[in-house]
Lab assay of single mutants.
Amino acid sequence: MAEQVALSRTQVCGILREELFQGDAFHQSDTHIFIIMGASGDLAKKKIYPTIWWLFRDGLLPENTFIVGYARSRLTVADIRKQSEPFFKATPEEKLKLEDFFARNSYVAGQYDDAASYQRLNSHMNALHLGSQANRLFYLALPPTVYEAVTKNIHESCMSQIGWNRIIVEKPFGRDLQSSDRLSNHISSLFREDQIYRIDHYLGKEMVQNLMVLRFANRIFGPIWNRDNIACVILTFKEPFGTEGRGGYFDEFGIIRDVMQNHLLQMLCLVAMEKPASTNSDDVRDEKVKVLKCISEVQANNVVLGQYVGNPDGEGEATKGYLDDPTVPRGSTTATFAAVVLYVENERWDGVPFILRCGKALNERKAEVRLQFHDVAGDIFHQQCKRNELVIRVQPNEAVYTKMMTKKPGMFFNPEESELDLTYGNRYKNVKLPDAYERLILDVFCGSQMHFVRSDELREAWRIFTPLLHQIELEKPKPIPYIYGSRGPTEADELMKRVGFQYEGTYKWVNP
């Protein structure tokens, strides 16, 4: 592979701008107003304001973009700056750019259920340069409990009458099928589907988006991507930290609602779906819905739930269990780990287990898709061969690698495990991989909904998990304890083995 010439960040961002501006969906010269509902909250200060700053800094926003914060707290732009700027990672050389960014910011205080507050917000936006005809993007960085009041008031008082209007809704989209349907029906009564952007930030990850290209742009994968060759698929999300004093919020939802029903299920769809007619948003989402419709409700015998306990040999936070978090209700049975087996009941995947695993306070930070292939028929190497695996590593250190057998150097035919490896950090030294939120917010500006969740996708996802969630809430089974920093409950490994996964433990990928 030829040595790549190092590029400056300015040059890299210039390439990104060229890609972005050559499309006809990006209205570079139009006025846009980006409204952050819930501007005083954690999500706004840690993710949304920093993301908008990065896009502005790199010249990736339309030229005439204004940012308006809205929340109940009586704040000023200076207050917003004070709480969000520490997350910007701005350099001293960017000081003038930073001043320009905050000059485009404003803030309006108001209630979430008060019509007069929204009329005041609308008047404020109209007073901005060309504000009355601007395109408006409303980001709901809010708890779902206020979605209905907020969307109703936005629709009645704050819509642009000339430009387009788009609304970005953060997960969780309800707690179960019934609450999700209620919320979807409410929002759909106010906005068209092409105006609604239900954001799952995992769909903005580079390697998640790469799944489609790997599958449908490489001839070698087509013939082997089926039940005849693939023994099982494992989708993993692991965090090495616990709730760390923020367990009160987590306890309301648990690990299945927080990660599995959305992030992991979306990745499953991209692995299992048929080739779409095109890369058009609805063509892709149509195929994802077909996959979900082929999955039956989760069966309790295919589920393992766990909850982390303190590690007596650990240090600091590792010595504390979930129930030691003062914000967690006493005696909570909320799971911090889950392993679930699903089956896609169609011709391509009949009988292939899709194993979804996620948890907190585990032994490493990792998100990946792992396809394990069947054993080689007619073994001539005296059971020395391990199964081939194709691994798409989402985070950290984005990579695609194939675990395969090669001859060990020497005189004899002794096979050993090795890999074919594409590590993004080595291959793409001159490429700026956008943060997931950067990519998705740019998608909203461009009107691309491919990486957002459609209402029928959402409904099918909740259909699969709601009976299990209701059973857990009714019966309150005690989750299996696992030690902070471990791989999780051993019962999860036993479940995976029972459905056909072979864990060798003899080879570990190392970032080159």
Rank of each mutant, 00 (worst) to 15 (best):
D228I: 07
F221Y: 14
K95A: 12
Y147F: 08
L137D: 00
A134P: 13
P143V: 09
I224W: 04
E148G: 11
Q22G: 05
I15L: 12
A231S: 12
I15N: 09
N210T: 12
E252S: 11
K89T: 07
P240A: 08
I36P: 01
R9F: 10
Q119L: 14
R257T: 10
A116H: 12
S29R: 12
R104I: 13
G242M: 00
F21H: 12
F66E: 08
P50Y: 01
L128T: 11
D113G: 11
R17N: 15
T65V: 12
A71D: 02
N185T: 11
Y70L: 15
S180T: 04
N153T: 12
M159P: 11
A217E: 02
S73E: 06
I220W: 10
P144D: 01
R81E: 08
E93M: 14
G242H: 03
P62S: 08
A78S: 11
T31I: 07
T31K: 03
I80W: 05
F173G: 04
D24G: 09
I234M: 08
V12E: 09
G131R: 09
A127K: 13
F191P: 03
M1V: 06
G222D: 09
F101S: 00
L140P: 06
N165F: 08
Q133P: 15
E206V: 15
L55T: 12
L61N: 02
F34C: 13
E85G: 08
F138Y: 06
L211V: 14
D113P: 09
R9S: 13
L75D: 05
E99Y: 06
A71H: 01
M207F: 01
P92S: 13
E156V: 11
S40R: 03
L190R: 12
L75R: 07
L61C: 09
S157L: 05
L190Y: 06
K171V: 02
M37D: 00
L137K: 08
L140Y: 11
Y202M: 02
L140H: 07
Q11V: 15
E170K: 01
G23F: 08
D228V: 09
Y70T: 11
E85S: 13
M207T: 04
S106Y: 09
K47M: 06
R215V: 02
F21C: 13
D30I: 09
G59H: 02
W225C: 04
A6Q: 15
I168E: 02
V146N: 11
I224M: 08
I234C: 11
I162L: 15
R246F: 00
K46T: 06
Q161H: 10
A103W: 10
F101K: 01
F26I: 06
S184A: 12
F173R: 01
L130G: 10
Q195G: 06
W225Y: 09
D114F: 08
D42W: 01
S106E: 11
N135E: 10
Y197T: 03
A115F: 15
E252L: 13
V68T: 04
N185E: 11
F216C: 01
Q133T: 11
R175G: 08
R9G: 02
D181W: 05
P50W: 03
I154Q: 00
N122P: 01
K89N: 15
W225K: 02
A115E: 12
R198A: 02
H155F: 11
D30H: 12
I196K: 02
F253I: 10
I36C: 06
F138I: 08
Y249W: 02
T91P: 09
G245Q: 13
G110T: 03
L121N: 00
E252W: 07
W54I: 14
N165E: 09
I162M: 11
T76E: 11
R74A: 11
R120V: 09
P172A: 02
I224P: 05
D42C: 04
L177Q: 14
G248W: 02
G14Q: 13
R74Q: 14
T91I: 10
R227H: 15
G242L: 02
P172Y: 01
D30Y: 13
F191Y: 14
Q209N: 10
R175K: 12
V77Q: 08
G245A: 10
P172G: 01
Q161M: 13
G23T: 12
W53F: 07
V213Y: 12
L203G: 01
P50E: 02
K82P: 11
I48H: 00
F56D: 04
H201S: 05
F173E: 00
E93Q: 15
R182M: 15
N229H: 10
A71F: 04
A44R: 01
Q133W: 07
E170V: 02
P144G: 04
A134L: 08
A134C: 04
S123G: 13
N210S: 12
I80K: 05
A231T: 11
I220Q: 04
N229D: 07
D200F: 03
Q11K: 10
R257D: 08
F237P: 03
W225G: 03
L96R: 08
G254Y: 02
M125A: 14
F216N: 02
E239T: 09
E63W: 10
R104A: 14
C232Q: 13
F88E: 02
G38S: 02
P143I: 11
T243F: 01
L60Y: 08
L190Q: 13
K95R: 08
G254F: 01
N135L: 07
R166S: 06
N105Y: 07
G69R: 01
E18L: 07
A78C: 13
A78F: 13
R257M: 05
L183I: 10
I220Y: 06
K171F: 01
Q22P: 12
F241G: 06
T236W: 03
S189M: 15
A103Q: 10
R215H: 03
V233W: 02
M159N: 13
S160K: 09
I162S: 10
P62Q: 07
F173M: 09
N135Q: 09
G245C: 14
I168Y: 01
V108H: 10
H27T: 06
L43D: 00
P92L: 04
V208I: 12
R192C: 12
W53P: 07
G248Q: 09
V77L: 15
P143M: 04
M37S: 06
K171P: 00
W225M: 07
L121A: 08
Y107V: 07
G59D: 09
D114R: 14
N165P: 04
R227S: 11
T243K: 03
R175F: 15
G110W: 04
G254I: 01
S184H: 08
E93Y: 05
N229I: 06
P92D: 08
R166H: 10
